[in-house]
Write a protein that binds this DNA or RNA. Sequence first.
DNA 1: GCCGTTTTCGGCCCGACTGTTTTCAGTCG
Length: 580
Amino acid sequence: MTMAPNRSGGNREIVATLEEIAKLLEAEDANPFRVRAYRRAARVIDGLSESVRDMLARGADLTALPGIGADLAAKIREIAETGASRMLASLRGEVPGGVADLLQVPGLGPKRARLLQHDLGISGLSELVQAAREHRVRQLHGFGARSEQRILEAVQAHVERNRRFDLRIAGETAGTLLRHLHRGAANGAYTVAGSYRRCRDTVGDLDVLATARIPAAVIRAFTSYPDIDQVLSAGTTRASVVLRNGMQVDLRVVRPDSHGAALIYLTGSKAHNLALRLLARSNGLKLNEYGLFRGTTRLAGETEEAVYGALGLTWIPPELREDRGEIAAARRGELPMLVKTADLQGDLHVHSSASDGAADLRTMAREAARYGLHYLAITDHSPRVAVAHGLDAGRLRAQADEIDRVNAEGGGAVLLKGVEVDIGEDGSLDLPDDVLGRLDLVVGAIHSHFDLPADRQTVRILRALDHPHFTILAHPWGRLIGRRDICHFDLERVLRALAQRGSFIEANAQPNRLDLWDIGCQQAKAAGVLVSIASDAHGPADFGNLPLGVGQARRGWLGPSDVLNARPLAEVRTLLRRTM
DNA sequence: GCCGTTTTCGGCCCGACTGTTTTCAGTCG
């Protein structure tokens, strides 16, 4: 499973450096536990909700972090203070450029990559392909014609498949596959586990758990799925395939009495599982995908609750299983009560057909109510977003009158008057203050100039927040998954400013945005800024995306009290007025 | 490289699958 890039604002550079060190050490065939130590440190830094620079500034001791000792603490400090690492520089000199790329090829690990480099002088993917075509690879000890062929296929596939999918595509893909499995092996029970179950913002592959008494029937049904491009492996209890859309699916079959243990194993994360197994081991027990064992005696396995319970833990929601302190919290019985979709009372970022939405106000109000929402902020675009037919002051005034009429009719969610105002390159807003002041809320967002340097981008956003009626900063990072990378700015400074002004930040629930995502939600909570989980709906069906935003909030350990729109309308009105 | 009320050295999660082997190493999740 690969890390998504750019996950945690100020610590990105440290995480990237540590991961590159790990990769180069691995290419050198260094002690695997040493490699693991760097990877673990990268993960720990990645999961921090505070920047290392700030921690050092307040005199924090980095060795207090799990898996970080004196040596790594010094290296991390060096990166934070100088922006560079002498160790990385020297490793780059030692390892021929491109050798580390060999490790990205599925089927090539450190041992065989090193052999290719040492015996054939191969130091890159193109050289690897050439050597395989000339049948020089099969001459090496431990390689054969079959592995030579697989290497060629893998390099090809690697180029095409090295991507992650958004949750809508993952969900649709999983749904179609599960319907096929039910038809082919109807007596099995199926669960999509992995990062999809943990509500990661994107997924690299699908992990499916099947519980069945006759595993062979399930494997047969799985590998005969028509949408398969390639079967990577198929044994008696597990199989891996690549689908035509490029997504890899791993299926695991266990008997019903192992369902809980297997579900934990397959849900991950890897780091969480590792920590659980260490905990088991420290109690003289063994945890695997079949259960929790003392010697050969199974103590638990049928349900997740039983396995966690036998380890002295309360059940841990999948969204928290990242080894970011959830195990210690579960041991103390202090896991937070996480926000649920049912907690959402309203939605504070929605479009109508007045701009680029698909439905009129009445339809949106009615459908929102059907979805269980009590209030809905209509926030169409401002004039500068011309492709979306942005509203000027006159049309906004007319819309306000229409909202009054719809609210008077009743029968749907209460509509609030808002706008999604564009933030200009200089931090100005696209509508005058007096127009914005007549609204219930002002959602501000960036729609252009995503590539400003971080300091200018930060100043731009801070200026926008300074407008007297600014309420909610929407989809702050501006990313579109798979299409547009995040813009760079200092989230911590922005959060401090939002907290001072009594303003809010959005966790946008569109599957191709999910922005903020988990760490950002956690940082908002730490800064004391309430999060608005918003559908950004452009039609009634988009309310169905709200659970995806809730997933990010849950991954950020947010409870109902941390979420602006988990509060009743009267309270939200009071909070909104405070910013006006 | 980290870590320790059994340990400051010698461990470091655990099992499935593949290919090249004749009992297993390498890789993956």
